[in-house]
Amino acid sequence: MSLSQRPGAVRPGSFGQSSRDGEPRAQAIKVLVVDRHPIVADGLRACFAQHSDIEFAGALQDAAHIVDEVTARRPDVVLVDLDLGEVDGLEVVKAVLRTRLPIVAVVFSDQRSRVGAALQAGAMGFVLKCATGEEIISAIRQARSGVTSMSPQLSPLTVTPLPRAQIRSVLSGRELDVLRLVAEGHTNAEIGRRLFVAETTVKTHLQRIFAKLHVSDRAAAVATALATGLLVAGPDGFGGQVYSFRPHNVAVMPLRQQAVGGS
């Protein structure tokens, strides 16, 4: 199968039609489902029909032409299973994101050990197939708004740690403070206020964190820190354990309203 890329034109933003009073009216979130099992797509279609802000944009049983499909259908969210037969669902996530279209991907799978890999691939969420309809809808809404979310059932979750050799150097105490606040959902501006530094200083710390963890964005940095034990999620937030590269039972971020992304 081929996941060839054909970049398309960028779709206009979330506000299109106007209401009677002239104010812009938010459009429904269009969701494309990629899953080998038609019964799953049928169940999601019925679930979406109960929410006026969610629109079922179709279903694909394979990913042979995923780039062509998202370019033509222009969904806002692609809900992707990891088990697609010949193609790994994470490759589908990467192919969708490479189009540079304003689309976010959410993984819909029971392969719990691949949460970190999914976030590193660019997914904005990981929802288990045992999740309730409301949890699925919540994850879709949050992903569309830029919030990385996980099914609450993913706590606790065993994540296979990355080899220490993959991390160039351990984070400094201040870098760990910044990463902990990122994991808790704070923006750069909020982090600056909490640490009494300028927002530009926070951005510099993030650039150094990305370089040391060999990642390119906030979500991947948090996933890597969880997998290696640099951050350990608990009921009181994300505690840091510098020099701890042993396996940990970590609680991945539950569904919440604060964004991990954003500046």
Rank of each mutant, 00 (worst) to 15 (best):
I103H: 01
A211Y: 01
I137Q: 00
V87Y: 03
G89V: 05
M253N: 02
C130S: 13
A123R: 07
T201N: 08
P235Q: 11
R193C: 00
L255D: 08
G239F: 13
V80I: 13
D35H: 05
R246I: 00
M1Y: 14
L128G: 04
V106Q: 01
L101V: 11
S109T: 11
A118F: 04
R180H: 13
S149C: 12
G125T: 12
I66M: 10
A223N: 03
V80D: 04
M124P: 02
R144Q: 05
F210R: 01
C130P: 00
L79F: 10
G185F: 14
E175S: 13
K203M: 09
V147L: 09
I137F: 04
Q27T: 15
P38G: 07
L162T: 06
V70H: 11
A9D: 06
R11V: 15
V170E: 13
P161F: 08
T200N: 13
Q61T: 13
A118W: 01
Q120H: 08
E91V: 08
D217L: 12
R45W: 00
E91D: 15
G239K: 07
A117D: 06
T99R: 13
K129F: 02
G8F: 09
A220S: 14
K203F: 06
K212S: 08
H37C: 07
Q142T: 10
A57C: 14
T187S: 15
L79V: 05
P235V: 15
D88M: 07
S172N: 09
P156Q: 05
I29F: 03
Q166N: 04
K212Y: 03
V10L: 09
D110C: 13
V70R: 12
R100P: 00
L176T: 13
I136Y: 01
V77A: 01
G125N: 03
R193W: 05
L231Q: 00
D83M: 12
H214P: 01
L97D: 00
V87H: 03
S149F: 03
E190D: 08
M150Y: 03
R74N: 06
L128S: 03
G85M: 06
A223F: 01
E199A: 10
G16F: 02
V40L: 01
V232N: 07
S14F: 12
G133R: 06
S155F: 09
R25I: 04
M1P: 12
V92R: 11
S244P: 00
P156L: 13
G133E: 04
A64Y: 06
G185M: 14
R168N: 03
A221R: 02
E175H: 09
A57W: 05
F210T: 02
G146A: 07
V159G: 00
V182A: 09
G116V: 15
P235E: 14
A139H: 04
A28L: 10
L181S: 05
D217N: 15
P24E: 12
P75S: 03
A211G: 06
G240D: 11
H65R: 11
L226V: 15
G239N: 11
G237P: 04
L128N: 00
A117Q: 05
A227V: 10
I54L: 15
M150V: 11
V67R: 15
P102W: 10
